[in-house]
Computed example of a mutant assay.
Amino acid sequence: MRVLVIEDDEDLRHAVATDLSAAGLEVDEAGDIAQAHRALESAEYHCAVFDRMLPDGDAITYVHRRRQQGWAVPVLFLTARDQLADRLAGFEHGGDDYLVKPFAVGEMTARVMALCRRAGAARPSVLRHADLELDSARREVRRAGVLLSLTSKEFAILEYLMARPDQAVPRAELIEHCWGADADPMSNVVDVVVLRLRRKLREPNLIHTVRGLGYRLVDPNRAVQ
């Protein structure tokens, strides 16, 4: 599996790359967004590790723009910004995980390995359930043929539920998958996003609450026990 590390601190970049290489990954390095863009355009990666503040801009802006274009490579943000608002911004704009500096390189490697496994998991690019269609490659969702406008988190939750139709998915599992391991498992952030998602999907309701656990994607034309 191949990983791109984008960090302008040369010593830290080499330390991260060395540990990832020792874990058996193929690692490329970049010192700014321009270098990263050239690398991402010329090779396929299972994960990209972005320092947020780079010499030519905030990586969150670049990642957000690429996500809007359908780019699906998992992203881990490294940053000294430790405020909740900063972490939420990273996730909302396309990040898959967020690690605050200073960090243990071993923990970073474990997180990258998890993202690489997620990226390598075989799954269809188009998921269908009832009259709902989700295209992972194009980052598009349609209900009864109508294109819907979803945020990155709404898309991530829906995609996770559609890959597990009729299964009760715990809130904690959705938080870990869609927000990362550092997210507060007691937070109501999942409930807030699901509420918005239900409104956008319109009736009949496809996402049912499983009391005391989480959510289940159902087919309104078929009863679920």
Rank of each mutant, 00 (worst) to 15 (best):
R2C: 12
L4Q: 02
E7D: 10
D9K: 05
H14M: 10
V16K: 05
D19I: 04
S21M: 10
A22S: 11
E29D: 08
E29N: 09
Q35R: 07
L40P: 08
Y45A: 06
H46Q: 15
H46P: 01
H46V: 05
C47T: 08
V49Q: 09
D51R: 05
D51M: 13
P55L: 07
G57H: 13
H64K: 05
W71S: 08
F77V: 11
T79P: 13
G94C: 04
D96P: 03
D96V: 06
Y98F: 14
P102S: 04
A104K: 13
A104Y: 11
V105K: 08
E107F: 09
A110C: 07
M113Q: 11
M113I: 07
A114T: 09
C116W: 01
G120S: 04
A130H: 08
D131C: 05
V141A: 14
L148H: 12
L150W: 00
T151E: 14
K153G: 03
F155H: 13
L158N: 00
L161H: 04
P165M: 12
A168Y: 01
E173P: 10
I175D: 01
P185N: 04
N188I: 02
V193L: 01
V194W: 00
R199Y: 03
N205P: 05
I207G: 10
H208Q: 12
V210A: 06
R216P: 06
L217N: 02
D219C: 08
P220W: 03
P220F: 04
